[in-house]
């Protein structure tokens, strides 16, 4: 009796569970599928044909050619800019927040907890609040309009310090640090060659988190940059989007550009997802 009941109940709920997940999957996929199909259409067909099926005369290749040749091939420049901002910004952010988090975890010094609390408070400050005053500050020293205006602020990740501290506590045993010191290793060397290796899952997470944060950041480049050659993809696409009123051809550029940049990032996400240790961000709250 018991076995029968147990078998029946799951059958119904398994169906319900998978039904809900299928609906959710369709929801998550919908805009991406739409844009991939739309990227194969002519500007006219974009508005004249059903959105979730191909038009009679697909022109994906000519759309791509158009995307990469518009305004002297500026789109590929935007992609490179985005990669530079995100890659370089996230790299420096990872190194300096790992060092800081490690120091807070493994050294005893006055003001340690105060420092950590202030940095933690930084996690709670909305990024939009920082961007406006930062514009006026950097304008005062003539940095606005340059790559640095976006790069430098992107190198600060309070959340990274937080993760690094939690993870240094958890995965770098004091005995190892003490033993290395007795062997005569300097503290910088212990950090650079021993601790970073033990903290590597956390470092990868900090890097990816910051990479996506910078890639997705819009307000900072919006206020800082005025030369289209320094734009990241996000800013460039909204520039084109603002010109659709003038020339409907820009609709197709925006759609194809969105498709290409979404594909780049989604592929990156899927490829790196196994390195993405979300459990670090969740377990972190217990610290």
């Amino acid at each position: 009796m018991v076995t029968v009941r147990r078998r029946q109940a799951p059958a119904v709920s398994t169906l319900a569970i998978n039904g809900i997940l299928v609906v959710a999957a369709v929801y998550f996929l919908l805009p991406l599928v739409w844009v991939l199909i739309a990227a194969t259409k002519s500007p006219g067909d974009l508005f004249a044909t059903f959105g979730l099926w191909f038009s009679d005369s697909p022109q994906a290749w000519s759309n791509l050619v158009g995307l990469f040749t518009q305004s002297g091939g500026i789109f590929s420049r935007w992609v490179v800019n985005s990669i530079v901002y995100s890659g370089l910004g996230a790299l420096v952010a990872t190194v300096i927040s790992a060092a800081c988090g490690y120091a807070i975890a493994k050294f005893v010094f006055p003001g340690r907890e105060v420092l950590f609390s202030v940095i933690l408070g930084g996690v709670l400050v909305p990024a939009t609040v920082i961007a406006l005053p930062l514009y006026f500050l950097l304008n005062g020293v003539g940095l606005t309009g340059t790559y640095w205006a976006v790069l430098l602020p992107s190198m600060v990740s309070p959340f990274g310090v937080y993760l690094a501290r939690i993870h240094a506590n958890a995965s770098v045993p004091d005995e190892v640090v003490e033993a290395a010191r007795l062997d005569g290793a300097g503290d910088l060397r212990i950090f650079a060659s021993i601790a970073t290796r033990m903290m590597s899952p956390a470092l990868v997470t900090i890097f990816l988190f910051q990479f996506v944060t910078i890639w997705n950041n819009y307000l900072l480049p919006l206020v800082m940059l005025n030369d289209t050659r320094t734009f990241p993809v996000t800013l460039g696409l909204t520039l084109w989007n603002s010109q659709t009123q003038r020339d409907p051809m820009f609709y197709q550029l925006v759609v194809t550009g969105s498709a290409v940049s979404a594909v780049i990032l989604v592929v990156l996400m899927i490829a790196l997802q196994r390195f993405w240790r979300a459990d670090l961000t969740s377990g972190a709250s217990k610290g």
């Binding site: 890639w215 819009y218 990032l265 989604v266 990156l268």
Partner: peptide, 9 residues
């Protein structure tokens, strides 16, 4: 996957 798509896009 949508997490990787910037808010603007």
């Amino acid at each position: 996957a949508p997490y990787g798509v910037p808010g603007v896009i």
